[in-house]
């Protein structure tokens, strides 16, 4: 793959610059092909929602964006994905650095079995974002504030993160991702394990985070996609069927499969 000639893939609507873009991305699990060639751009400071029925490949695609698929032995990725124009599957590119720039929040809250404080500073410590105690303190405070958790936990920073409620745990995981100061945050159905109130919290948070970060969110919940995203991509059976402004997708889908899905005929 010639990365030089494709450093800046043309943006779809030409107005904004693409933070990340995918061209012809195919993913294989052993012999089975899970994605059949995905082309999509992700713009800075916007929320892109990936929707589609289960097994459509949206989570698989999300995981290719920070190479989390590397941890699965039999998984193979073809095609081009760029971050700021650089191919992220370039053998010279460093995956650890990539994941520091493209953070991830998972479906199930997965705080480390350590204190809240240690959970937050885990990433900054790894990447050398700070060295002194007061710097770490500042990062912890700022990240927790950004994740809207500060007021709830500021008095018990040294208690284990696993002791929080589900919604709080997920916000802790978001704070943990934010603390590394990534450029892009990937969220894999971050609310699927949470109750409606906690979900509302997280959705609000996502909207605020958009100011500083580029966000890609996988969701099952179409109302959620409509609420939090600016653009939406609809996946179906390993294909990207349609991508466009969220409003457009939900009010005036071009493809009948999209229409079928958002009107609830299948999914």
């Amino acid at each position: 793959m010639d990365t030089q000639t494709m450093t800046k893939p043309a943006a779809e609507n030409g107005t904004k610059s693409a933070k990340m873009s995918a061209r012809g991305v195919k993913v294989f699990y052993g012999e089975k092909r899970a994605l059949h060639g995905i082309d999509v751009d992700i713009y800075e400071n916007e929320v892109l929602a990936l929707i589609g029925p289960s097994g459509c490949g949206k989570s698989t695609f999300l995981r290719t964006l920070n190479r989390m698929n590397d941890t699965i032995d039999i998984c193979r990725v073809e095609g081009l994905i760029t971050l700021d124009g650089a191919d992220i599957y370039d053998p010279k590119l460093d995956v650890v650095q990539l994941r520091a720039r493209v953070g991830m929040v998972f479906q199930k809250p997965n705080p480390f079995p350590k204190s809240i404080y240690e959970n937050i500073i885990y990433g900054p410590k790894l990447h050398g974002l700070a060295t002194k105690k007061d710097e770490f303190d500042a990062i912890v405070e700022q990240s927790l504030k950004r994740a809207g958790l500060w007021n709830e936990v500021k008095d018990r920073l040294m208690e284990p993160g696993t002791g929080l409620s589900g919604g709080q745990q997920q916000r802790l995981c978001i704070a943990r991702a934010v603390a590394v100061s990534p450029e892009v945050i990937l969220m894999d159905e971050p609310c699927s394990a949470l109750d409606p109130i906690a979900t509302a919290h997280i959705e609000e948070l996502i909207d605020e985070l958009r100011e500083n970060f580029t966000i890609v969110i996988v969701t099952h919940n179409m109302q959620q996609a409509a609420r939090v995203s600016q653009r939406t991509a609809f996946f179906h059976l390993g294909d990207l069927v349609e991508v466009g402004n969220t409003e457009e997708i939900f009010t005036n889908p071009r493809d009948e499969r999209t229409q079928g899905y958002i009107t609830g005929r299948y999914g």
């Binding site: 800075e44 650095q97 520091a100 720039r101 990447h127 974002l129 700070a130 710097e135 500042a138 990062i139 700022q142 100061s181 990534p182 450029e183 500083n212």
Partner: peptide, 15 residues
């Protein structure tokens, strides 16, 4: 000095 890397998008801390 902390907010700088978090907000300044022109030069990423990580690169």
């Amino acid at each position: 000095e902390i907010t700088a890397p978090l907000s300044d998008r022109s030069v990423s801390f990580h690169t």
